[in-house]
Amino acid sequence: MTQEFSAADLQKALRQQQNEINDFAIYSVLATLQQQDKNKKIFEKIAREEQQHYKFWRGITQRELAPQNWLVMWYVLLVKLLGTSFALKSLEKKECGAEAFYKELFELYPQAKAIYHQEVHHELELIDMLQDKKLLYTGAIVLGMNDALVELTGTLSGIALAFDNTLVVGATGLIMGIAASLSMAGSAYLESKENPLQEISALSYSGYTGVSYLVTTAVLVMPFFVLDAMAAALALMFALALVAIVLYTFYISVAKGLSFTQRVLQMASITFGVALISFFIGYAVKYFLGVEV
């Protein structure tokens, strides 16, 4: 069948064929690692579909291809570290690049239309049905991280103008952050107890909340311990806060299929808006009370 293709189209077909055998191997490995029957059946179903897609391309290219083991292990590792929703939706996004090529084949190979539909719709619907515990706990991570970003950037901005010593600002922020992380963890534990979900452990939920708050605190106060200039420390703190917002929003936008730009702007506006207000409060305290350390 390769006579229907130009040399360039044949290379595209081989790349797509390689993607399909890679995806088949990834989903097959994940199926064997699953303990939940529901997830196992979904992985097996997607693996069978990917295998059929591979056979379709093999019939066109007349070539046998083997999975790229390094890529298979990479996505299995991503699933372990970041959860199934993020890793597998990242994997499926690769298929978007094949959209135009599939459409070129609709008239020549009618089966390509069904495969294309499975790739861009059905498989994502199946992934949405997976029970992803890491995604269930993102609410706890959001709670801890958002509160830390808003409260600590605001607090540090305010006391940075009230106090002229970066170490004093950093130490104050660290003490407040540790206390707040313990308080947040306790509140999250009580909240999850009052609204129990079978899939969520109250202790784990509170742990994710407290740890995410504590880690965010450590990132935000670090500039005040390594830099002597207050302006430089504040600038670095805001830069790190923005990086944290972008990284988290990228994760959640991929995992949940949400708008990346809209969420980044929303989180950044709240965080930096509170910080700006606190900055002026700190200026007022310093000006009217004459506080200077």
Rank of each mutant, 00 (worst) to 15 (best):
C96W: 12
K134R: 15
S253A: 14
A66M: 15
L174I: 04
M222I: 10
E49M: 07
W74E: 11
L77K: 02
S212Y: 09
V219H: 05
L77N: 04
N165V: 00
A275M: 09
F5V: 02
L214Q: 04
V120S: 03
K80T: 07
T216W: 12
I21H: 08
L214D: 00
L197N: 06
I141T: 14
E99H: 15
Q35L: 15
L265C: 11
E199P: 03
T271Q: 05
W74L: 15
Y287H: 06
R48H: 15
A255L: 09
L258K: 15
P196T: 00
M145K: 12
M145S: 10
A148L: 07
M176A: 15
M73C: 09
A239K: 11
F250E: 12
F56V: 01
K55C: 06
F225W: 11
I115M: 13
T166S: 14
K89S: 03
I245R: 05
Q62R: 07
E99F: 12
Y208A: 08
A25T: 02
D37C: 04
I141M: 15
K94Q: 06
K256V: 13
S6A: 05
S278R: 04
V226Y: 11
L30D: 03
L240Y: 08
L88T: 01
L161F: 14
Q35A: 11
H53W: 05
K134W: 12
L242M: 13
A179R: 03
I178M: 14
T138A: 05
V274C: 10
L135C: 06
D132P: 10
S278N: 15
S28Y: 08
F224N: 08
L88E: 01
V285S: 04
N19M: 11
V79N: 11
L30I: 04
K94A: 13
S278Q: 02
F225D: 02
A87Y: 01
E119W: 06
T2P: 10
F250Y: 13
A179Y: 02
Y287A: 07
L126R: 12
L77R: 07
Q62V: 10
S259R: 12
L14N: 03
E191L: 14
S278T: 11
G59P: 06
L91S: 10
L81F: 10
H121M: 05
L220S: 03
Q68I: 15
M184L: 09
S253Y: 12
A114R: 15
G158W: 05
G170M: 06
K55D: 07
I175A: 15
P67Q: 12
L203H: 06
K133H: 08
L174Y: 08
S28P: 10
L227C: 08
A66P: 04
L258D: 08
M176R: 13
Q62F: 02
L126M: 13
F224P: 00
A140E: 00
A229P: 01
S183K: 07
A25Y: 05
A185S: 06
